[in-house]
């Protein structure tokens, strides 16, 4: 009888502590959930970059969004300006017709492919289209092939 009581009390006691510790654990998990924001104060992933007529032939850097907009004749394309190695912003070299990273020397060709390391992945190309008001519209959510372009008769 006495032993039973003791062991039951022990069991309940341990159960209590177990629940207490799991509550603490749950609160910690909830706290981590709190750290993950539900709304973002970031620039939209889909944005307008101006009218096609304002882009002369060639490669144009959009500093605010870290992309390049390319124009060949009436074809427009958009490519990331962020080096796939460690995220530095690259520069376009008109001489070599290549993107060069100032941080660790990666070089990418016109198609965005890696010519020289340390980067291993090619540059992502983004969907580009013409919005209703006639401006070029880039969507960073959509990765496309390097040949994807929008044709605008300017």
């Amino acid at each position: 009888m006495f032993i039973d009581q003791t062991s039951r009390r022990n069991f309940i006691n341990r159960l209590g502590w177990g629940v207490f510790l799991s509550t603490i654990g749950g609160i910690m998990v909830a706290s981590i959930r709190l750290l993950a924001p539900n709304v973002l104060y970031e620039l939209p992933k889909e944005f307008k970059v101006g009218y096609p007529k304002d882009y002369p032939e060639g490669v144009h850097f959009i500093p605010a969004r870290r992309i390049f907009v390319l124009r060949e004749n009436n074809r427009f394309r958009a490519v990331s300006a962020v080096c796939t190695h460690l995220g530095c912003t690259m520069r376009w070299s008109e001489q070599d017709l290549a993107w060069k990273c100032p941080c660790h020397g990666s070089v990418f060709n016109e198609k965005g492919g890696v010519i020289k390391g340390p980067a291993t992945r090619p540059l992502p190309w983004y969907d580009i289209s013409v919005s209703l008001d006639g401006q070029l519209l880039v969507d960073l959510n959509k990765d496309v092939s390097p040949d994807h372009s929008v044709v605008v008769n300017v």
């Binding site: 909830a30 706290s31 959930r33 539900n38 709304v39």
Partner: peptide, 10 residues
């Protein structure tokens, strides 16, 4: 305001 509206458990 955000703590009261959109932050989880905020």
């Amino acid at each position: 305001k955000d703590l009261g509206t959109t932050v989880s458990f905020g």
